[in-house]
Design a protein around this nucleic acid. Structure first.
Length: 602
RNA sequence: GCCACCAUAGCUCAAUUGGCAGAGCACCUGUUUUGUAAACAGGUUGUUCCGGGUUCGAGUCCCGGUGGUGGCUCCA
């Protein structure tokens, strides 16, 4: 297997073999033990280790209170302070059923395990008086866990469905975290605090970027001037970059006749995420959940020659999808959002080159923004399944094109069979944010299905009609989600080229207002987003306020600056650069912006 | 949608066992004209999320709704 096909995550020690995994898994058992002391009638479900801790699901006789959590946490610490061995035992199914006769969830698990593995033996682990059905592994004894490195009060109790099925029993999930040392726990706490400070919903309000208004509706962000400026800057950048690469702009409406979606197959199969049809003079229209059908109709609007291809249609297309209200979250999960969409209609022989160019574009986008912590996932079809459309040769060719493209680009990726869309294989870019959550952003999908459903064709050199292949791609994924993540990525301190306001000129006295306006006009003339703060407040309070708004350059002007035609430059990082000639500053700032520099300098 | 928690001025928050709704910031007016993280004084600001109930009396207790937060499921 070529090196690039290795799953990058597999290069690390397997989590299951890790001491931390055993600590967390064992802590989950101790949690269950303490919970059963507090709630003897509780039924236990499952309690696995997760990325930064563990959880355990319980079916409780009554709601759990904050006091209960405190009690259980103290009890856990007390148990962990002792040296209680984790004893593993293999038991026959009947013995297991007898042991867990009062635990219906465990009995269900036993039946499923036996059905899946056909195993005659099950393993159980016992510490002190508590026994759990478990595959292990565990630490040898509770002495291996530092009670001061364990906490369950960091995250509030939450609801979770048994086996993730919303039709089944809702359980109470207690989250915990456990580390090797108290110092690691403290570091984890600090990271959570830092993540909370960066929350894009909080920064979005503080920086005046966007609001979500209850009268307008949940999940429908309103972009304020500063946020709209940021978004417009990103859009212009991507639009220009795309035009350089031969993309063609198109603009299509947010509604479409339901026939469009019946033809594409999105209706009724995507009905769960669509809004109800709108009656227009007896015809049904949908608020569009995706842009592809509109784009297909533009392709179909005239005869196409092989010479016309590839055709790359790009649009920042607003779409609307129904999301359950509990799932909405600021900009990262909205009901109305804008996809930086494009659909490339290509000949089969152009697929590889076009795919490579798309991936290069996405790499350029992420690289420019300094978002380097990402991985790529190739979703291929599950050969055992018949849910896919298109013949095997097409899939083979498309998958090979994606893999070849990744190899040629030296892109670290891993392959996940069964992750393809039903209409073709895809490549997703998954970015990690400061919370260490992974977000699927950019996506590239190869599609043989829509060209077929819309009966798209072109006349080839041999004068026969051929079917084009479609590439769907969106480097940002959606502008809303992407900007939400950017806000957290930069903690609101955007690089100057993205900053809604790049420079604020602060006059020391009212008599310097005219000069401040003159400096501002000079900066605006070279395309900068500059503002003169001539309000009737003193200089220090203006500095304080603009500093809080994370403005990259503060330009203080007083008598000395008026006389020497300079500005006294203070950088966002609080560095006082001193007086610079206006022209020198303007040239340096322009160069910083043109280079899309990640840092504020002069 | 479901489970839990929360909702007081534009913002951050206070208000003892149920007993006159407050502070800081912001905003307005006046004074001040300041060289790098909050000048001074005065003033305005409330359907305590909405609707009902209990009570002599509800921000506080109860019921219902709305909105938010953390999860579950899903996802750009």
């Amino acid at each position: 297997m070529p090196c690039s096909q290795r799953d990058v995550r597999m290069s690390d020690e397997r989590y299951e073999d890790n001491q931390l995994y055993k600590i967390r898994h064992s802590a989950a058992h101790v949690l269950a033990e303490a919970m059963l002391e507090r709630f003897p009638a509780a039924k236990t479900a499952i309690g696995p280790p997760i990325e930064d801790g563990f959880y355990y699901d319980f079916d409780l006789p009554q709601p759990i209170s904050a006091d209960d959590v405190k009690w259980v946490e103290r009890r856990m610490r007390k148990i962990l302070a002792g040296a209680h061995e984790f004893q593993c035992r293999e038991v026959a199914p009947d013995t297991a059923r007898e042991l867990f006769r009062d635990q219906p969830y465990k009995l269900e698990l036993i039946d499923d395990l036996l059905a899946d593995d056909n195993a005659a033996q099950l393993t159980i682990y016992t510490q002190r008086g508590f026994t759990d059905l478990c595959r292990g592994p565990h630490v040898a004894s509770t002495a291996d866990i530092d009670p001061k490195a364990v906490s369950i009060s960091l995250r509030p109790p939450a609801g979770a469905y048994w086996r993730g099925d919303e039709k089944r029993q809702q359980l109470t999930r207690i989250y915990g975290t456990a580390w090797r040392t108290p110092a690691e726990l403290a570091e984890h706490r600090a990271q959570l605090a830092e993540a909370a400070k960066r929350d894009h919903r909080v920064l979005g309000e503080k920086l005046g970027l966007f609001i979500i208004d209850s009268m307008v509706g949940k999940g429908l962000p309103l972009w304020l001037p500063a946020g709209a400026t940021l978004r417009d800057t990103l859009e212009r950048w991507l639009r220009d970059t795309q035009v350089e690469r031969g993309y063609l702009p198109i603009i299509t409406p947010h509604l479409g006749n339901i026939q469009l979606y019946k033809t594409s197959g999105h209706y009724p199969y995507y009905a769960d995420s669509q809004y109800s049809p709108i009656d227009v003079d007896g015809d049904e229209f949908l608020l569009r959940p995706m842009n592809c059908p509109h784009h297909c109709r533009i392709y179909a609007s005239q005869p196409r020659s092989y010479r016309d291809l590839p055709l790359r249609y790009a649009e920042f297309g607003a779409v609307y999808r129904y999301e359950q209200s509990g799932e909405l979250r600021g900009l990262t999960r909205a009901r109305g959002f804008t996809v930086d969409d494009a659909h490339l209609f290509v000949r089969p022989d152009q697929l590889l080159d076009e795919f490579i160019d798309v991936v290069r574009l996405i790499q350029e986008v992420f690289g420019t923004l300094g978002m380097t912590d990402f991985r790529a996932r190739v979703g291929t079809r599950d050969p055992a399944s018949d849910k896919y459309v298109g013949d095997a040769d097409m899939w083979e060719a498309a998958t090979a094109a994606i893999v070849r493209a990744c190899d040629q680009l030296n892109l670290a990726y891993h392959i996940e069979p069964g992750e393809a869309a039903f209409y073709g294989p895809k490549l997703d870019f998954i970015v990690r944010d400061v919370l260490k959550r992974e977000w699927q952003l950019g996506t590239v999908q190869v599609d043989y299905n829509l060209p077929h459903r819309f009966d798209l064709d072109y006349v080839d050199s041999d004068n026969t009609r051929k079917r084009p292949v479609m590439i769907h791609r969106a480097p940002f994924g959606s502008l809303e989600r992407f900007i939400g993540i950017l806000i957290e990525h930069f903690a609101g301190a955007f690089p100057p080229w993205l900053a809604p306001l790049q420079a604020v000129v602060i006059p020391i006295r009212e008599s310097h207002n005219d000069y401040a306006l003159e400096v501002t006009a000079r900066l605006k003339a070279c395309g900068m987003r500059a503002h003169a703060d001539t309000t009737d407040r003193n200089m220090r309070s203006k500095i304080r306020q603009r500093r809080a708004m994370l403005v990259p350059w503060l330009l203080i002007v007083g008598d000395r600056d008026v006389a020497a035609r300079t500005v006294s430059v203070r950088l966002r990082g609080d560095e006082d650069v001193g007086a610079l000639d206006i022209e020198d500053f303007a040239a340096a700032a322009q160069a910083n912006i043109a280079a899309k520099a990640m840092t504020v300098d002069f």
